[in-house]
């Protein structure tokens, strides 16, 4: 394959994300910036999850644990030890990576629904643990000392900055997603997804490959957690480890199409867009959760490969572009 062709699949994802980043900048609108932040966050998290779910075929129902855990660790250093947001994010990313490595060694032996259940258990155990862990403020959590924002030119400037950092993290997530997908390592993951035993017979060292996939899928969420809690100014256990957000991420990946680079991006975009519409619509706002549920059900039942997967199957020519 020509090397430029290999990277053709990166074009659309980059364009979509660039569009989301530019929209509030061009309109110079704070509420647009907030919406864009939410969408970028969803894209970064869903693309990360996709490395494990879409490429490797392991259904993590508790992926948000890396967001919560990394976020807690990073915010702790920022708040209690005066670290910069950059160092805090690095710490959060590393902490989540290490957690994924250790967990991966243990639970990636489980297959199918057993793995999914274990990830739920870990998320709940971690939430309960944070509730009891005094260093992280127990049930009250941590409230960021407002003076921390001063170093960044005050709260308003700091908020603006978090948007650009979020944009950077999203691009990073997207690049990781793409380079994993188009690498030899990624081919090994896809083989594991399709048939783990056969992949091992062909020489794929599945235990290692899965663990590294898990680690890669955990780092960006850890950093996003730090950034988000920094922006929010506080964190507490239910905010850090919401099981339903884990599942929303699965929905986004599924909606767009698992195992593709573009799928989770479009899925995140569409899901957040739909939610945004539903919660503001007079007619739907009270039952927005139910409407989302119906949409999810229809997707699962009728287009389980997601939008991108569906297109790829229908129109094979598109495979290169819709990588």
């Amino acid at each position: 394959m020509k090397s430029w062709q290999k990277h053709l699949g990166l074009v659309l994802p980059l364009l979509v994300v660039a569009g989301v980043v530019l929209w509030p900048i061009i309109t110079d609108n704070v509420s647009a910036r907030e919406s864009a932040f939410t969408i970028l966050k969803a894209i970064a998290l869903a693309s990360s999850l996709n490395i494990l779910l879409g490429y490797t075929g392991y259904v993590s129902f508790g992926h948000i644990v890396f967001y919560g855990f990394g976020g807690y660790v990073g915010l702790y250093f920022v708040n209690d030890h005066g670290w910069s947001i950059w160092a805090g994010m690095l710490a959060g990313g590393i902490a989540s990576g290490i957690l994924a490595f250790l967990l991966g060694k243990a639970i990636l032996r489980l297959r199918g629904a057993y793995f999914a259940l274990a990830t739920i258990g870990i998320n709940e155990a971690m939430k309960a643990f944070a509730n009891n862990f005094d260093l992280f403020g127990g049930p009250i959590g941590m409230v960021l000392n407002f003076s921390v924002y001063k170093a960044y030119g005050g709260a308003a400037e700091a908020l603006k900055m978090t948007f650009y950092i979020m944009a950077g993290l999203t691009f990073a997530a997207l690049l990781i997603s793409h380079f994993v997908r188009s690498s030899k390592f990624g081919l090994g993951l896809l083989a594991i997804r399709e048939n783990e035993d056969a992949a091992e017979v062909m020489g794929v060292i599945a235990p290692n490959a899965k663990t590294w996939a898990y680690v890669l899928s955990a780092i960006i969420p850890g950093m996003v957690g730090v950034l988000f809690f920094f922006k929010n100014g506080h964190v507490e256990p239910p905010v850090a480890f919401p099981l339903h957000s884990s599942i929303e991420l699965l929905v986004m990946v599924m909606l767009g199409g698992q195992g593709t680079v573009l799928g989770p991006i479009l899925g995140a975009f569409a899901y957040q867009g739909m939610r945004g519409y539903l919660v503001t619509s007079d007619f739907f706002k009270d039952i927005q959760l139910s409407v989302s549920g119906v949409v999810l059900l229809l997707i699962v039942l009728f287009i389980p490969a997601g939008a991108i997967g569906w297109l790829r199957h229908r129109i094979p020519v598109l495979r290169r572009v819709l990588a």
Binding site: G188, L190, R193, E194, A198, V204
Partner: peptide, 13 residues
């Protein structure tokens, strides 16, 4: 077979 991969990708593995 690795069903959802192409024939070529199967062999590349």
């Amino acid at each position: 077979p690795l069903n959802e991969l192409t024939v070529l990708e199967n062999v590349m593995v």
